[in-house]
Nucleic acid binder design. Structure first.
Length: 131
RNA sequence: GAAGUCGGUUAGGCAACCGCCGCGUGCUUCGGCACGGGGAGGAAAGUCCGGGCUCCGCAGAGCAGGAUGCCGGUUAACGACCGGGCACCGCAAGGUGACGGAAAGUGCAACAGAGAAUAGACCGCCGAUGGCUCCCUCGGGCGACCGAGGGAGAUCAGGCAAGGGUGAAACGGCGAGGUAAGAGCUCACCGCGGACGUGGUAACACGGACGGCACGGCAAACCCCAUCCGGAGCAAGGCCAAAUAGGGAAGCAUCAGGCGUGGCUCGCGCCGCUUCCGGGUAGGCUGCUUGAGCGUACUGGCAACAGUGCGCCUAGAGGAAUGGUUGCCCGCGACAGAACCCGGCUUAUCGACCGGCUUCCCAC
């Protein structure tokens, strides 16, 4: 049977992004950084940590955008939104890992389409080695 | 119609799908789910002022420090705003202004220039007065020469500060008299100071007896005077409260062991167990949005604003929501994201629309 219809209530659609899939605590962020694994792209670092069996399933995301790299709050919010949006769309296909998307290089012209493409690429790499 | 000026409004729209965060109602296997409705700004920004709120401090006063600075008003308050005065800019509408005090004191003024605040004399003007030189006349002497008077000199002593020149600024301006040349030296007018009068709440304006040219500028130099200001901030503050370590109290156990009680024995204390208490970290809840609120009508006021009636509830996150994709339309969309809340200021900003006023042109 369909696993979603088993409970009868859990009807969250495939692209939903409820709070349980976000990193919210300082020590959760620290443990991801402490795992010392990351994928690189032109502007981003995608840190990740493979979760143990008892920690639940599904990927979780945190986004870090330093004020040092983007001075204006508007731009920081934009980058965070891009990160969350693409994570939301790909979440179901991602393995059980804690991810932290971190902006590492100051994007000179802030091209949202290019940045979105980059994030999609990084998350895609996260999916493929599992296959 | 064109150019300008001042003020206000707005900040792409619609639809579909996929998401996020509160709220209300219902359901729930307490994990959530369904439905309804709401979800950034004019600057949310800079954090430059002011206030509320919270905690700490506080008899009162003063010092230090800071801020403000024409007058009157508005306000919870202000360094804001409104109205007025003055100065400057603009043909005008209008704009700009840290705009108190320089006879309380101490200071400062580059360069240029003769001289820069106890003024000064480079060029220049004069040389009346006293010399000098020359000439003329008269008198005296044999004569060199002497005396008296008159005249001349791009001259000395000296007088002057009008003119030139320097400068951001040169110790009133301009005209006349006056003089050797000049000078408030004298006079008229202007400017300055000003008893007093008139208008105005006042700043101030107008008139002005009289004075006499004395008293230059800079206070965004120190300073003086007047007024105001206690400190820290929502990571304020309040409540609940794990794990671990430690503290206190009561009870139990003291069989054995260890440590301490200066060496030994006894004894006592601690290390043990149970319960309770308070502090407190992670974490959670709260503060957290109904407010000096918004809209509207009327009243008072030139206005800022105030009062009254009626209506409305309009984000509340917390690794931090308010978004993404697609389609259509238009003039292709700027600056930019709430973090306790208000009142301002400043800075950023593609445009669109509305209104008042000014000047010019055309038509009547």
């Amino acid at each position: 049977m369909n696993p979603e219809s088993r409970t009868g209530e859990r009807k969250a659609s495939a692209a939903a992004f409820p709070k349980q899939y976000r990193l919210t605590r300082t020590d959760e962020f620290s443990s991801v950084f402490g795992f010392r694994r990351a994928l690189k792209s032109r502007h981003f670092l995608l840190h990740y940590r493979i979760r143990a069996a008892g920690e639940g399933d599904g990927a979780r995301l945190g986004v870090v955008v330093a004020k040092r790299l983007l001075k204006r709050a508007f731009d920081r919010n934009l980058v965070k939104r891009l990160g969350r949006e693409h994570f939301r769309l790909l979440r179901q296909r991602l393995p059980a890992r804690d991810l932290v998307l971190r902006l590492a290089v100051k994007p000179k012209p802030l091209d949202r389409r290019a940045l979105a493409e980059e994030i999609r690429g990084l998350l895609g790499k996260m999916i493929s080695p599992e296959r």
